[in-house]
Design a protein around this nucleic acid. Structure first.
Lengths: 204, 204
DNA sequence: GTCTATAAGGAGATAGAC
DNA sequence: GTCTATCTCCTTATAGAC
């Protein structure tokens, strides 16, 4: 097996181990056991566990997108679109809460590791960009425009989704989440105004 | 030294160590070094490190309050009161980001420890109660009432503050935080309506 | 109660055969 | 390239002197 393939295999096995037992439990032995290889193979592919963790987190930052939102169905008013989008996001959290816990653990781990401290910022910027695009698409589709700069709206939406994620991990309360999403949808809809389309120039 | 005093001393030392090097780095040796005692003294007070971690997290859940909000100054309209409260909360985050990281690490640690899994829920409930009281006080002082059940308003506010915390840890962006707080204050103000006080009964 | 010394095991990493 | 066996260090926990 080529070294690059082995590295990928190890990183994916490590992610599965982390999902099960956390970053703390992801020892080199646990990882190679999950991957079905020997301990020496790990160190043939990576010089150290630290090096593997760096590659793992870099991979997550690159590949982790806001896929949850991409299931949005348009065709309604902006309030409904936002509310449906939040619900779709929430269902992905419910379906795989362990994955959200992993992302949080990796973020906190990165913040404690000097070589990785900038990655959470990069990931946050990635998310903001993704959410900005979605808000743009939603605005065009609903025939509205945002009364604030779109990146500010995106930052607010991202704050809400992060808060929803933390709350779900702590309390697993669907009703509370629904309430928060209702209020958030109202809040975002209040930041939208209809675009006045002049079919004919009635001035003159 | 009495056993109970020693336990408190150890827990406080452990919290300082966790703040510096994380939950992963809070070994018994690091903790007793911080506390200036021998390793045996640790095990005289606690049967195991796990037992100490349980007491530590229970202590945090009991003693961690939303003190940040208690610096609110009333006397303005509800939008200003909320915005000022958010700012006060945010300043405590900025002043001690490491503390927020510790709280998050302990939450994730608890979720991975069967004996501690219910504590994050309890802490979340505590926060909700505290925020509810503050929203009540703010409403009375500003002469408004909330158009939704107050615990729902509290859940939304808590979601925003959690999201603000995560964002600050990731990006350290004051401007972004200010924007989110502006929008959040608008959103909450939209959930308030003035109380109609009838000084005299003008019907009849 | 508090200490030093030590046990017993797990961690990352490497040597060297194949 | 991949393995088994091993090195070295660090961890939690305990034994036993004082």
């Amino acid at each position: 097996m080529s070294s690059v393939d082995r590295r990928i295999e190890i990183v994916q096995a490590a992610l599965r181990v982390i999902s099960e037992v956390g970053v703390q439990g992801a020892t080199t032995r646990a990882i190679v056991s999950e991957a079905g290889m020997s301990l020496a193979s790990f160190h043939y592919a990576f010089a150290s566990r630290d090096e593997m963790m760096e590659e793992l987190i870099a991979w997550v930052v690159e590949n982790q997108t806001v896929a949850a939102f991409s299931t949005i169905r348009y065709g309604s008013d902006i309030r409904t679109t936002v509310r449906d989008g939040l619900q779709a996001f929430f269902e992905t959290i419910v379906a795989d809460a362990a994955h959200e816990q992993v992302l949080l653990e990796l973020m906190l781990f990165s913040l404690r590791t000097p070589a990785l401290q900038k990655l959470p910022h990069a990931q946050w910027a990635n998310y903001t960009l993704g959410v900005t695009e979605l808000l743009n698409a939603a605005a065009v589709n609903a025939g509205i425009e945002w009364v604030r700069p779109i990146d500010e709206v995106a930052q607010f939406l991202l704050t809400v989704t992060d808060g929803l994620t933390l709350a779900w991990l702590a309390n697993r309360d669907r009703a509370a989440a629904a309430t928060v999403m209702d209020i958030a949808a109202d809040s975002l809809a209040a930041l939208a105004v209809p675009i006045i389309t002049r079919t004919k120039d009635r001035s003159a």
